[in-house]
Simulated assay, not measured.
Amino acid sequence: MEVGTGDRFLRLLIEYGEDPVLLEATVRAARGRSELVAALPEEETRRHVRALVRGVLAALEDGGPGGEVLAAAERLGSDRARQGVPVAAFLDGFQAGRAHLVRTLVAEGRRAGVPDAVLLDGVTRIDEITTALVHRMVHAHRVTELETARTAREARVQALRQLLHGEAAQVRAPLDPAAAYHCVVSDVSDPAVAARLEAELTAAGPGLCGLVDGRFAALVARLPEPAPPGPLLVASPPAGLAGVAPMYALGRRALRAGAGAGLTGMRELADLALLTVTEAEPELGGLLAAALLAGLDPDEPFHRELAETGLAYLDHGGRIEPTAAALHVHGNTVKYRIRRLQELTGRPLHDPAGGAAVARAANWWWALHRWLAENTT
């Protein structure tokens, strides 16, 4: 559209669009509407306002926004995403600046005698152009935001992987090089489940989570209370970042042992020490089972019940009632089974009065655990 065709609104925009007073007032309107935009350098806002005003003018002259105008809108959206300004906040600033500019043009047009119909048509065309620009800005903002998030996420996960593998890593937020962290490991490979676990673990304090070696792992400052239910998670004691690699290796071993025992939920690494060590020596456990449990027949279901009861009895400190509750049987049933187990093996299962009681209890526990693992299908 040529200026000489009588488009008085276009002439009005040309006249006032480069007016420094109007430009500054538009900049103030944009910054006043959004605190995040106001936090940016003022020249940054001024540069974008000037570019968009020129873009609208060019679009009015050409009958619509061209490639350069749309590219300028995309740059604005991308810049705001990289600057960390949310799309809603940056659109608030954009719309405030646009509204101030339109109000000023309408007021000046009326003072200049421009008919209301011409002003209305001009404002409508500006709205059509700015709508197209907003679509481009929002799209570019979202694309850049996703790319930035993905890049930052990949960098954090790479740092987590390096720390857990004992490699040199650049420590960034949310980790503090001087702090200690629990190393949490799991066998979770489903991204959706991993995302849920990340939210639960980091709700208690800062942490770094991701898929390492194909499975969810985390370094967290504090463990959630209560512990989240669900898949087995093994959590180490807090350690400095230089010491998390050994915790990760131990946690993976404990995880395998805990999974083999059918455990679920969050478990302290220290609580799985005996299970982890004995699981790593199956041959020795088999020899111990053969020595202590020679009187049990693996083909006899009742003998498996005896072994399960003996293991539960040891797990509950040799107490009848807690053992019965865990097995959902009567206390007398537990007493009978323990008596029969001792009769068949020829050895007392629990003898606190004898010497080396702890070692004997541990040997019984290991033997029963190994015997059940070998003979339960």
Score class of each variant (00 low, 15 high):
Leu284Trp: 10
Leu292Cys: 05
Glu268Arg: 15
Pro174Phe: 05
Arg196His: 14
His182Arg: 03
Ala173Lys: 03
Ala71Tyr: 12
Ala373Arg: 15
Gly251Ser: 07
Gly243Cys: 12
Val102Ala: 09
Arg340Cys: 13
Cys209Val: 15
Cys209Trp: 15
Leu292Glu: 10
Arg50Pro: 05
Gly310Pro: 09
Ala280Phe: 09
Ala242Gly: 13
Thr309Glu: 11
Ala307Glu: 06
Asp79Met: 14
Leu296Met: 07
Ala221Asp: 14
Pro86Leu: 00
Leu341Ile: 09
Val244Gln: 05
Ala59Trp: 00
Arg82Ser: 14
Val185His: 04
Gln342Asp: 10
Ala324Lys: 01
Arg31Asn: 13
Gly93Ile: 03
Glu147Pro: 06
Pro246Trp: 11
Arg196Glu: 15
Ala29Trp: 06
Thr377Leu: 11
Glu200Cys: 04
Leu197Trp: 01
Asp79Thr: 11
Trp366Lys: 04
Glu18Met: 07
Gly84Tyr: 02
Pro348Trp: 03
Leu272Ile: 12
Tyr181Gln: 03
Asp79Cys: 13
Glu200Lys: 07
Ala99Tyr: 00
Val157Gly: 09
Leu344Thr: 15
Ser236Cys: 00
Thr345Asp: 06
Leu101Thr: 06
Gly207Asp: 05
Val334Pro: 07
Ala254His: 09
Ala359Phe: 06
Ala353Phe: 12
Pro352Phe: 03
Gly4Phe: 03
Glu374Arg: 14
Thr377Met: 05
Asp315Lys: 08
Gln170Leu: 14
Leu133Glu: 00
Pro65Lys: 00
His330Ala: 12
Ala245Ser: 08
Val212Pro: 12
Leu197Ser: 02
Thr104Phe: 14
Tyr248Met: 07
Leu372Gly: 05
Gly205Tyr: 08
Leu293Glu: 01
Leu232Phe: 00
Arg304Val: 11
Leu314Gln: 02
Gly166Leu: 07
Leu255Pro: 14
Leu263Asn: 11
Gly77Lys: 00
Ala326Thr: 03
Ala261Thr: 06
Glu15Pro: 06
Cys183His: 06
Ala257Leu: 11
Val157Phe: 10
Ala356Pro: 13
Glu42Ala: 11
Gly93Trp: 05
Tyr16Lys: 13
Gly32Cys: 02
Trp364Glu: 09
Gln342Phe: 12
Gly317Arg: 03
Gly207Trp: 02
Arg319Pro: 08
Met137Phe: 01
Thr276Cys: 01
Leu163Tyr: 06
Pro352Gln: 01
His139Leu: 15
Arg156Ala: 15
Thr376Lys: 05
Gly286Gln: 12
Gln170Ser: 10
Thr144Val: 08
Ala59Ile: 01
Ala357Ser: 09
